[in-house]
Amino acid sequence: MPDIILAATDGSALPTNPGPAAWAYVIADEDFAPGEPVSGTLGWSTNNVAELTAIREVLKATEGPIVIRADSQYAIAAAMGLHKATKNHELIAEIRALVEPRNVAFEHVRAHQADGDPLNAVADEAANAAATAQGGPLQPPSSTVRETAGRATWSGGPEAQG
């Protein structure tokens, strides 16, 4: 493994945001080719929570210097402490605690580009697959759903916010 770890993270909430959500990361090998992606599901959540969770998980799974590529400017800014969080406080605090003692750098990459970052593409595909595989309801299970002027609205618990 190289002296500095190179990884890409991504999160997904499909088919809606919020919706069935998942996170993924992939670590590059010695030749900077994508390794096997690692992913997990979150149930009903937001894309922002999934993006942040991916960063947390790659930090928990690795040691030493790391460069994390992500397509979420929000998640990068939150992880670096550059964003005054109005939501997701506990998750961001956990990430900051993992970042603090380490040499961690973040690189923003553009998502869904034909000539884009190959690591991001693998993480994106893995997160989307995990989110989609959950199936499940198209509304939060603990929500109150009501019809308002022909539109369905919902209010969910704190885990559905952010």
Rank of each mutant, 00 (worst) to 15 (best):
P2H: 06
D3A: 13
D3S: 11
I5P: 00
A8Q: 07
D10E: 03
S12M: 08
P15C: 14
T16P: 00
T16F: 03
T16L: 04
P18E: 01
P20N: 14
A22F: 04
A22V: 02
A22D: 05
W23G: 02
A24G: 06
Y25S: 05
V26M: 08
E30V: 08
D31R: 14
F32M: 11
F32V: 05
A33E: 15
P34D: 09
E36T: 13
P37M: 04
V38N: 01
S39W: 01
T41W: 01
L42W: 07
G43D: 02
G43N: 02
G43I: 03
G43Y: 02
W44A: 03
W44E: 04
S45R: 14
T46E: 00
N48I: 10
V49H: 08
A50P: 07
L52S: 08
T53K: 05
I55K: 13
R56G: 07
R56S: 07
E57G: 02
E57W: 07
L59H: 06
K60V: 12
K60R: 15
A61F: 06
E63M: 10
G64T: 09
G64L: 06
V67A: 02
I68K: 12
R69P: 06
D71K: 03
S72L: 07
S72Y: 09
Q73H: 13
A75I: 10
I76W: 11
A79D: 04
A79L: 03
L82E: 15
H83Y: 15
H83K: 12
K84W: 01
A85C: 10
K87G: 00
K87Q: 10
H89R: 07
H89Y: 11
E90A: 15
E90N: 11
A93E: 15
V99M: 09
E100L: 11
E100N: 02
E100M: 10
P101L: 08
R102V: 11
A105Q: 15
A105N: 08
F106C: 06
E107Q: 15
V109Y: 13
R110H: 12
H112C: 11
H112K: 12
Q113A: 12
L119V: 09
N120C: 10
A123W: 05
D124N: 09
E125F: 01
A126N: 04
T132S: 12
Q134M: 10
Q134I: 06
P137M: 02
Q139R: 06
Q139I: 07
S142A: 10
T144E: 01
V145S: 03
V145D: 00
T148S: 03
G150I: 04
R151W: 04
G156S: 04
P158Y: 00
E159A: 14
E159P: 01
Q161A: 07
